[in-house]
Amino acid sequence: MSEKLLEVNGLKKYFKVKNGLLHAVDDVSFSIKAGETLGVVGESGCGKSTTGRLVLRLLEPTSGKIYFDGQDISVFSKAQMQDMRRQMQIIFQDPYASINPRMTVSEIIAEPLRIHKLTKSKEELDQRVSQLMDTVGLAERLYNAYPHELDGGRRQRIGIARALSVNPKFIVCDEPVSALDVSIQAQILNLMQDLQEELGLTYMFITHDLSVVKHISDNIAVMYLGQMVELAPSKELFANPIHPYTQALLSAIPVPSLKKRRERLLLSGEITSPVNPKPGCRFANRCPYAQESCHCQDNTLTEVSPGHFVACKLKAPEFQ
């Protein structure tokens, strides 16, 4: 299980805005091995959700290549892509907005099966929907219920069942728990982990919640203003964060202890505007270690130790 299921190369998405180009995702490259989870973290507006949508081609990338299972899906036609969606699915952030209020639970879960004609008869469809509802922990009595009759956690389970219905290999989870309260968050996360083990799923898990990402990820990618600044195995990243932004991010995790005093790395300054950004490190304006040269040159992800990549010229060994 060490084959790369998804590989992304030089992915870019620029949006045209009033005064220029908004660099939402700027030259992002990564890969995810089959059966593993890549956690993507970063603050609001850093391009994590956009990256997730680009990977599924729900948004058209400005440039870059996306390889899924060895195929370059970035050149697929609309019809080819519709077919491809059987293998790659998404779970949305907002369980209130992401399901059609006029369809019943069973209709929502059955729709992907109908589109891809995965069941032969009405009975088979019915059974598959019941089975999916059982898998995600939705009671059978909700079969004909409408979404507005259910709470956020159950609605999110509908979203998960819908994504699972086509037996995908890969699921983009776009902050699937951030709209839920903490006790439900844990339930949904455990459900998603169980499903991953059972079905051998590969996740791209987008979140701004570091404790969630630590819980579920094999590798973690940290994004800042459309760029990936650090990519490392989960344990390595938490034990040995190298990029100043990652360090600041990790120092912001609350520690549940009265005695232990931690050092907060507080960032000052505003986030640079992503519209027509100047060359140079995007984080330089807020970075406590920034030097003159940081403002001049772009950084690229460099491997500092096996599997640990950082985009910071000050921290990467060849610059020290």
Binding site: L56, R85, I90, D94, S98, I99, N100, I115, H116, R162
Partner: peptide, 11 residues
């Protein structure tokens, strides 16, 4: 979002 979801399932 549910329109995007419909596109994501291949509609």
């Amino acid at each position: 979002e549910f329109i995007e979801a419909a596109r994501a399932i291949g509609g």
